[in-house]
Design a protein around this nucleic acid. Structure first.
Lengths: 151, 151
DNA sequence: ATAAGTACATACATTTTTGTAAGTATCAAA
DNA sequence: TTTGATACTTACAAAAATGTATGTACTTAT
């Protein structure tokens, strides 16, 4: 039901376009998202996954099941409100599974679904690349700063 | 100069931690970013790269050099203001190169730096995964919707 | 008895992000 | 001559994200 046809742009504009969508039936391919189209629902998923805390939640859950407060302790700076919110987004998108044991005090476990594991791979790769690239990025910033002031 | 040591958590908590940072001198490894630490500058880079338009800009520039208005036409829904803003963030982080020909009317070309090509790989992989996963995600949403109303 | 931990929801305030509209200087087409 | 294209910037406004504080209902530790 996802119609992203607002932007009458054929996907064949991408020089490497043909290689990707092998072996999917035509019907499936038409339902695919197109992030370049303004009104495509895939934009919401992207928003959740790449949200400020979404990336970090996915990263941590990629290392295993966590309880709510364990997540909160690992992810520096999240508020309870935002952590709960983010987990609900990701749960609604089918990336995170919530398992509540009916005891008191509450005990809830969060883990990745198969869908979640797949995104987490990409998100974690991106995050780790950034962590490693930080020295280079800061070097670039310093270079430009001096170039502007003393150049 | 990036000190993310606020969160006294050793990186060895990650089960696969040892495999990644081979062949980097110790001094470099200490300057790495830690996205789980609240005050780490790597969070800003993540913010720029995963910003609403940052992902899409990187994706499009990954297919080749583009002029400002060409980018604007391809990325459905960006305002001029936001496109300019996003390009400046990515330029400051060393991901995007700006080449202005001094003519009138203006002619400016944007392309990826080597750093930018590296992020673009990850960002594009994530984006394309989401596009392909959309049918599954929407199926999951529908399943939960009926489960809640009729279950 | 008091405080802290558990997993949240909710109201409210603030901050951040994003959009809209207008302006700039110049050229070319209608 | 008016319009449109180019690549922006700036001021202002609206929308969205995020934070803070509080409450819940119960247990354990102090």
């Amino acid at each position: 039901m996802s119609k992203c046809e607002q932007s009458a742009k054929p996907r064949s504009q991408r020089p490497d376009g043909a290689a990707n969508d092998r072996m999917l039936p035509l019907a499936e391919r038409l339902r695919q998202g197109d992030l370049l189209a303004a009104a495509c629902p895939s934009r919401d998923v992207l928003k959740h996954v790449t949200s400020r805390w979404g990336v970090l939640v996915l990263m941590v859950l990629g290392t295993g099941t966590h309880r709510f407060s364990a997540l909160r302790r690992k992810i520096g700076g999240v508020s309870e409100r935002m952590l709960a919110q983010t987990l609900q987004w990701l749960e609604a998108d089918g990336m995170v599974a919530r398992l509540a044991h009916d005891v008191v005090p509450p005990h809830v476990e969060y883990s990745l679904t198969p869908l979640g594991e797949a995104v987490a791979v990409h998100v974690t790769a991106l995050a780790e690349w950034i962590e490693r690239a930080m020295p280079a990025i800061e070097a670039h910033r310093r270079a430009k700063a001096t170039e502007t002031s003393a150049g």
